[in-house]
């Protein structure tokens, strides 16, 4: 493999990884605060992509406006899902919440099949994201710059929200001890609603970016990205936002490089990603950046 081809593959990998990263930071944030693995995250992402699609295709809005409306709508749906599905099992054992999340995931997928139809739809890529760029023989499309850029911006905003604002402080308090936080006079339900709104908004942004890179959307499009983002989040240490981003990038590059160096295994790249998950869980269950689990005496 020549240096030029290696660089091309690296760019391919980073371009893919930035998408995983974008979906993973929302995934990990909800977990970090609520200790809930929101398996429906990928499907919320699908909703975001569809809302954006309907925004410009049916209501003929400019693309940026339909993207913003889609993100807002999706975060409202996120709050609704929390109120309807997760709130009733808040005090139940954690496994109940996990099962509920899987239920929500299946519900959204089949809801999508019924309402949007099972036929994949073409997603219009705004010109800004579709420009071809060539640098020293390495070719890429402008989304390969915009997606990592947006991921970085969202990451900074999210870090600011969690660590520098009052609501962020409340979120961190909820993640430490929900009951005590309630006793301190903080409206825990409101904090959780905000958490879901932000998580779902990130999912919607991820879904839209996903549809820009792979301009084809269908009601089941969220399943694989959801799982990959989960792997990325676990890889980076689930609950850690920066770790999830790193995990996403690394997963993307590993996937592409597997295909590049072992073309015979190209059909098994998902299997390789999942094997990675198993290996991490076996040897470093807290991930790259994960907190150390300290035994309480």
């Amino acid at each position: 493999m020549s240096f030029g081809e290696f660089m091309q593959q690296l760019v391919n990998g980073i371009s893919l990884g930035s998408l995983y990263a974008l979906v993973a930071i929302g995934y990990t944030m909800v977990y970090g605060i609520l200790r809930l693995i929101n398996f429906a995250h990928g499907d919320i992402m699908m909703l975001g992509a569809y809302f954006a699609f309907f925004g410009y295709a049916v209501f003929v809005l400019p693309w940026w406006l339909s993207f913003i409306i889609a993100i807002v709508l999706t975060s409202l749906v996120g709050i609704l899902i929390d109120k309807v599905a997760y709130k009733p099992v808040r005090k139940a054992p954690r496994i109940s919440a996990l099962m509920t999340a899987i239920g929500v995931s299946f519900f959204l997928e089949n809801f999508g099949l019924v309402v949007f139809g099972g036929v994949p739809r073409g997603f219009h890529r705004p010109d800004m994201f579709g420009k071809l760029i060539t640098v020293g023989g390495v070719r890429f499309v402008s989304y390969s710059i915009y997606i990592p850029l947006f991921t970085a911006i969202f990451l900074l905003l999210l870090l600011f929200l969690v660590y520098k604002t009052k609501i962020g402080m409340a979120m961190r308090a909820v993640s430490k001890d929900m009951e005590t936080t309630r006793l301190m006079g903080i409206d825990v339900d409101f904090v959780i609603s905000v958490t879901f709104a932000v998580g779902s908004a990130l999912a919607a942004a991820g879904g839209i970016m996903w549809a820009i890179k792979f301009p084809q959307i269908n009601p089941l499009m969220g399943i694989m990205p959801g799982l990959k983002a989960f792997i990325a989040a676990v890889f980076g240490g689930i609950g850690d936002i920066t770790g999830a981003m790193l995990g996403g990038f690394i997963l993307g590059v590993i996937e592409i490089m597997t295909v590049a160096f072992f073309p015979d295994f190209a059909g098994y790249r998902d299997a390789i990603a999942f094997s990675l998950l198993i290996i991490i869980l076996l040897f470093k269950p807290t991930g790259l950046m994960g907190e150390k689990i300290e035994e309480k005496v």
Partner: peptide, 22 residues
């Protein structure tokens, strides 16, 4: 001159295509 593989549902083929392009 080149045989590469993918899976149903794959969305990213850039790695395979880069190898074919060579």
């Amino acid at each position: 001159v080149a045989v590469t593989y993918a899976q149903t549902g794959d969305q990213d083929f850039t790695a395979q295509l880069t190898a074919i392009k060579r």
